[in-house]
Design a protein around this nucleic acid. Structure first.
Length: 561
RNA sequence: CGGGGCGUAGCGCAGUCUGGCUAGCGCACCUGCCUUGGGAGCAGGGGGUCGGAGGUUCAAAUCCUCUCGCCCCGACCA
């Protein structure tokens, strides 16, 4: 492709409202443009990258026997009502009515529709297993689209769904997807982790996420260098070293106006880990007192698994429920449900005394209060691995894929059943598996760039090489560059040739920004000696090669087919 | 939804507090000359409902009211 014929609107300066590196670079290099919040257009370069990612997805999905299909984005409400998600999902679902007043929605995912199809067509165990996938548009009315292409309201997703006769059979498809996903992300040149995750509104028991480490990410994962345990911090199990404290007698301490852990900690000259933090929450079934160690943070998601949806109590509610003002609450002697973090099980602590301006030192679990014990604290860097005790690392990551064992969560309500060998009806056992191609692209940029621009992994690059004839007014340059361009193209190598009548500096800057991994530079001086330069975008190192040898050298760089 | 910021040419910005001249600067764009190894130079030029609506005023980018949009933090997130 000739640069002069291609729409590549590069920018010298980044638009002021872009902040994530991938967003800035993809805008500046002319890959994407924004239409509105969370809505992006892919320009020719951006679309080429997407096409390459999708090709990898198709190859790897096809390789595990998945079959590509295509479903509508516009769905009738009834199907979503049958699984309960029409009501369970809030404003995030785009809803509308058709001309006759029928409730419709735009698909944010396709479990319902895939399952509906299976319910119509699958009859017998002989029809199973099936794995169906699509690469298709999803719409979600995100509360806060952000970070450019990383969190949008409309995006394409590769989503696949497996249909099996049993949990054991599902395990096979789950494993096949796991392996395919590893190959996909590896081929895309990403550094990534597979972690245990919270199935959330998808339901089901087991799920994993594929995460690309990047400071632009929105999630955090805990990783154990010891045993390899890795999980989203939403559910990562960790412990912390216990306090070294002697046998404190129970004593009341006057702590005037000292409410927060920090204040009391300073006042009593004891580190926060010696304190208990009691937080009153209002769940659907009434008030719940959650207790975590003073140096730790309550993790709302973990708590939700135990008590369901909840909200923090207001000041008045605290006083009314516990008879004491916030800041001096302790878990002792209340009638409400108490859920305490396991870190508090051993040792002596300081807690609110349930008496204004007093704390109680020497509080001990089970002796002074009882509670349901759960892991409800947020895992942090330096916590100890729940499995092997090694120190955990916490990393910020971009979620690029996820896989769920759904079981019969969707097949039961939608009546997706089959007849087993003995003629009995059974619900189909399902799994669902997603990958966000745009996030792969963004993560690749986040992980591969320098101050000058993008450095694409070869597998994702919109072109294999870029040719830079530095002076388009020099006939020798143009002739030599054009010859190589044609030879490479004929050989199936994708070439971008910057044939614009621009100065050398402009071409170098744009080439660095666009990030094609290999540049071939035709300069007048070198050409006089019969040489051209092959430059590696990442290392910025270049070698001078005889004109006649360039073709061969480039061929050698291309991955074996 | 709560908090904060911003909307002036394609991009980056100044001007707004303290109302007043033909609304300005850099880059980009067009024409010509010149130049061709890291975003050149000279000369000439085109491009603006100052986000929108209403109001105050002799006069509004500037003050007031409403409204729309975008970004960031938080809540939320298949």
């Amino acid at each position: 492709m000739r640069f002069s014929k291609m729409f590549i609107p590069t920018l010298r300066e980044a638009p002021a409202d872009a902040e994530a590196v991938s967003h800035i670079l993809m805008l500046r290099a002319g890959y994407v443009r924004q239409l509105a919040a969370g809505l992006y257009m892919l320009l020719p370069l951006g679309w080429r990258v997407m096409t390459k990612i999708n090709a990898i997805l198709r190859e790897e999905m096809d390789a595990i026997g998945a079959q590509e299909i295509s479903l509508p984005v516009l769905h009738p409400a009834e199907i979503w009502q049958q699984t309960g998600r029409w009501d369970a999902i809030g404003d995030e679902m785009f809803r509308l009515k058709d001309r006759s007043g029928r409730d419709m929605c735009l698909g944010m995912t396709h479990e319902e529709i895939m399952t509906w199809l299976a319910s119509r067509e699958i009859r017998s165990y002989r029809d199973l297993p099936q794995v169906w996938y699509q690469i298709q548009t999803k719409l979600r009315d995100e509360a806060r689209p952000k970070s450019g292409i990383l969190r949008t309201r409309e995006f394409t997703m590769k989503d696949s769904y497996s249909f099996d006769v049993s949990e054991e059979a599902l395990d096979v498809n789950y494993r096949l997807h796991t392996e395919a996903y590893h190959r996909i992300f590896k081929r895309c040149g990403l550094e990534f982790l597979m972690v245990e995750s919270d199935p959330g509104m998808m339901g089901g028991a087991v799920s994993h996420e594929f995460m690309a480490p990047s400071p632009a990410g929105e999630d955090e994962v805990a990783v154990c260098p010891g045993c390899g345990y890795s999980a989203n911090v939403e559910l990562a199990v960790s412990s912390t070293p216990g306090n070294e404290n002697e046998d404190w007698p129970l004593e009341e301490v006057h702590t005037p106006e000292k409410r927060t852990v920090q204040e009391v900690s300073n006042f009593m000259k004891l580190p926060p880990s010696y304190f208990m933090k009691s937080i009153l929450l209002i769940s659907e079934k009434g008030p719940v007192l959650a207790v975590v160690r003073g140096d730790q943070e309550l993790h709302e998601k973990k708590l939700s698994h135990i008590i369901g949806d909840h909200r923090p109590a207001q000041k008045g509610e605290v006083k009314e429920t516990l008879g004491v003002e916030a800041g001096f609450i302790g878990p002792m002697g209340h009638k409400v449900r108490v859920i305490a973090d396991t870190a508090l099980r051993e040792g002596f602590f300081v807690s609110g005394a349930n008496k204004p301006h007093y704390h109680l030192k020497g509080v001990r679990a089970e002796r002074d209060f009882s509670a349901e014990w759960h892991d409800i604290h947020k895992a942090r860097e330096g916590d100890l691995c729940g499995k092997c005790g090694e120190k955990l690392r916490v990393e910020r990551v971009i979620e690029i894929g996820n896989i769920f064992k759904l079981g019969t969560k969707y097949s039961r309500p939608l009546g997706a059943v089959f007849l087993n060998e003995s003629g009995q009806e059974e619900p189909i056992v399902m799994g669902s598996y997603g990958i966000g191609p745009a996030r792969i692209a963004a993560a690749a940029v986040e992980q591969n760039h320098d101050r000058d621009g993008i450095i694409w992994p070869r597998s994702l690059s919109p072109f294999d090489v870029e040719i830079l004839p530095l002076n388009m007014n020099d006939p020798v340059t143009v002739e030599a560059a054009s010859q190589l361009y044609e030879d490479l193209e004929k050989d199936g190598i994708k070439v971008l040739m910057d044939d614009r009548d621009e100065r050398a500096g402009v071409k170098f800057k744009d080439a660095d920004l666009i990030g094609i991994p290999t540049h071939i530079i035709f300069g007048e001086r070198n050409l006089k000696e019969g040489l051209v330069e092959i430059k590696d975008r990442r290392s910025k190192e270049s070698v001078k090669v005889k004109v006649g040898e360039v073709f061969g050298r480039i061929k050698d760089l291309m991955p074996a087919v």
